[in-house]
Design a protein around this nucleic acid. Structure first.
Length: 451
RNA sequence: AGAGAGGUGGCAGAGUGGUCGAAUGCGACGGUUUCGAAAACCGUUAUACCGGCAACGGUAUCGGGGGUUCGAAUCCCCCCUUCUCUACCA
């Protein structure tokens, strides 16, 4: 895969289809980190193959210095003006109109000064912010060097690759054969990429959603049902805006966006919050449909259920104290693996290299299942730790021991996205007379076999 | 959707142009008292940024944005939102 810096629609679309996660945030690094750990930042940017790191960091630090000078100057002028205003008030009260008018002269000067300083400050802050938005998150130390998917590290592989019978077919044939998912109908009522699930297909969808949610709840995640359209502020906080509006469906009349993943509304639950330490870690799960325009996607890998405009997904989100976030990430991966094991799907876990991982992530594991009839691995989940990168934009904090507020770490992963799971279940379990579903789904579905 | 009334600190609730970051009460935290607790009393109790080693000082924030003014929680405009009534609807 491409997707080096995550800024092109093309590479993002490729990376992110069902992996909730890489589509996500474009928040930013903190200026204080750039200032205090410049070397570490530059090394991290290099590992992510970000080309203009040194120049951008230098420019930001420069602008920040300018910003502080302006702030100081503005504050001093404003302080003097406030003081004069108080004096004028006192003079007016005592009837000394002439004395008051005399002070107003200076006040007018100061007003001009603060206005100039404020305007310039606004510009400088905007410039800083724009540069910060360009910088990707720093990779964790364990992230392998590399530019592309081939450089990803295979962490482990689980399960035997099934051998199919002679008449085996890819899922886009199987869904017609058993009449369980209908693309033609979806085209009629909406358009390409909006399939209609019918009969056992619809029941299988519902079964998977319930299975995933139950498993998440048992693993300690609290279920939430968020809105699936969000306002501009929410889409901005998780980083879809600005500059990825092309990937989201937009209702112009009310200026609302259809979510590309539950991560957007669920993470925004904690925007602008100082979370009491006893509520940490936050562990939420949510089932939602996800909508993606997938502008710029093409090619053979979009066939069938591999890439859709609307699909269902159960997402898990965690917000933790910084020292706990990597243990939390391991726990999320273990949870996802457990789901795949219960479904009996062969899978592998990859640690993404610096060039292939998402723009905003510090460490990402991809989980891929083997699709037997297509003969390839399909990404079904991706679990990431964003450290403070996203929290900085969200302003999601807690009060540390010293009483000082501190940014939290945010993480999320799909557990799981349905379409490719369905594809793998259909393909891997097909027999000459029907598709045998894994035992764990029988009670959820109300049947054990399709066809 | 139409009419009316509101949005103030963790909560409740004063404040309609001047030293108001904001009375008062509750809650919370620290202390005095107590064998311990309660009560009482004293104190503390927002966020961000700037300056400072620090103590501390400054600036901004009373739903959001803009305006008037020497000075705005308070006046004006726009937006968001809550409640009541009407209309509608699952």
């Amino acid at each position: 895969m491409l997707g080096h810096y995550g800024q092109t629609a093309k590479s993002d679309a490729r990376r992110s289809t069902f992996a909730a996660d890489s589509n996500n945030p474009r928040p930013m690094l903190q200026v204080s980190v750039l200032k205090e750990q410049t070397d570490r930042v530059l090394a991290g940017l290099a590992k992510k193959h970000y080309p203009t790191g040194p120049a951008d960091v230098a420019a930001i630090l420069d602008l920040d210095q300018r910003r502080r000078a302006l702030q100081t100057s503005h504050d001093a002028a404003q302080a003097e003006a406030n003081d004069l205003a108080r004096q004028i008030g006192a003079l007016m009260k005592s009837g000394d109109k002439a004395g008051a008018d005399a002070l107003k002269v200076r006040t007018t000067e100061l007003k001009q000064h603060t206005k100039t300083a404020t305007d310039e400050l606004t510009q400088v802050e905007l410039a800083i912010q724009q540069l910060l938005y360009k910088l990707p998150n720093l990779p964790h130390a364990s992230v392998p060097e590399g530019r592309a998917a081939a450089d990803n590290e295979l962490v482990r592989e689980h399960g035997a690759i099934p051998t199919l019978y002679a008449g085996a077919q890819p899922h886009w044939e199987l869904i017609k054969k058993y009449d369980i998912i209908d693309f033609e109908l979806g085209i009629k009522i909406t358009g390409a990429g909006f399939p209609v699930y019918k009969g056992q297909g619809a029941r299988l969808q519902r079964a998977l959603v319930n299975f995933f949610l139950d498993e998440a709840r048992e693993a300690g995640y609290t279920e939430v049902q968020p809105p699936i359209v969000v306002n501009e502020a929410s889409a901005t906080a998780t980083g879809q805006l600005p500059d990825k509006e092309g990937q989201m469906y937009h209702d112009a009349k009310d200026d609302l966006y259809l979510i590309p993943t539950a991560e957007v509304p669920v993470t925004n639950l904690y925007r602008d919050e100082i979370i009491p330490v006893e509520k940490l870690p936050i562990r939420n799960t949510a089932y939602t449909p996800c909508f993606r325009r997938e502008a710029g996607s093409w090619g053979a890998d979009v066939r069938g259920l591999n890439r859709l405009h609307q699909f269902d997904k159960v997402e898990i989100v965690q917000i933790t104290q910084p020292e706990n976030s990597y243990a939390a990430l391991d726990g999320m991966v273990a949870h996802i693996e457990n789901l795949l094991q219960k479904l009996g799907l062969p899978y592998r876990v990859l640690r993404l290299c610096g060039g292939d991982m998402g723009f905003t992530s510090a460490l990402t594991y991809d989980l891929e299942v083997w699709s037997a009839a297509q003969g390839r691995w399909l990404e079904v989940s991706s679990a990431s730790n964003f450290e403070t990168y996203q929290a900085n934009r969200l302003k999601c904090r807690y009060r540390a021991d010293g009483g000082k507020t501190q940014l939290l770490h945010t993480l999320n992963g799909s557990a799981l996205a349905l379409p490719r799971i369905v594809a793998a279940l259909l393909e891997n379990n097909q027999t000459a007379d029907g598709i045998e579903l894994p035992a764990v789904l029988h009670s959820y579905c109300g049947f054990s076999k399709i066809g």
